[in-house]
Amino acid sequence: MKKYILDLRVVENSSPHPRYALLKLTHDSKLPEMLPGQFAEIRIDGSKNTFLRRPISINYVDYERNEVWFLIAKVGEGTKTLAKVQSGEIVNVILPLGNGFTLPLSPKQKILLVGGGVGIAPLLYFGKCIKEIGAEPTFLLGAKSASDLLELDQFHELGSVYTTTEDGSMGEKGFVTQHSILNQIRFDRISACGPKPMMISVARYAKAEGIECEVSLENKMACGVGACLCCVENTTEGHKCVCKDGPVFNINDLLWQI
């Protein structure tokens, strides 16, 4: 897919939570096609200690409104600066980057989308794409507490939503891999994005159950286009770039201890 460097304009910057910002960006011309699970490298302007772009997954694409959404977790100075952009300001992005999630082969396939923390971000657009081909996505979303579970209304519009929280303030108490839905429905594939310990336990569950499973990684990255070879992950075929060969990998190709 052709990659673009675009000056996008901020339509809206909302704060669904003190630690997150949801940026809705648009462009004067039609936005390029993007696949679910792909990401953008976003330039951070006005932060003197930030040198590199920040890789941020594509949260949602609304082609009718010509908008692309990014859910930003305010982690360090770079993302905190990005989270302050105002409506009308310009954000420079390179997109679409990376491979993306595997879409269902038929509408009958039952796909479970597992997200943890800000890792829920790419699952919203993935869920939309699954729904568009006539399948119904099932979301299993985990977080520390109810207030950390973002964009739930949008997830509900796309499919069935199950949640876990560590403090029990919403859904079932515990971790995503402990949710009772896993005992009730036999899924054909699991796609997961979230903290590495969560993805490892999802991968372990999927492997034990013989379910196809893919995970989206977020290794530290510089170029985003497969040139610098900084963001590598160990795979059965040696070091692979998370930015170009990923971010989505089948768990059978990774050398995780699962």
């Binding site: 200690n49 040198f51 530290k220 963001c231 590598v232 070091h239």
Partner: peptide, 21 residues
């Protein structure tokens, strides 16, 4: 090449240890 992590951002630059992969 070398194991991950291979890169860290620094003031006005970055440090890498890709190791000729």
């Amino acid at each position: 090449g070398n194991a991950y992590p291979r890169m860290v951002e620094t003031p006005s630059g970055m440090l890498n240890c890709v190791g000729l992969q």
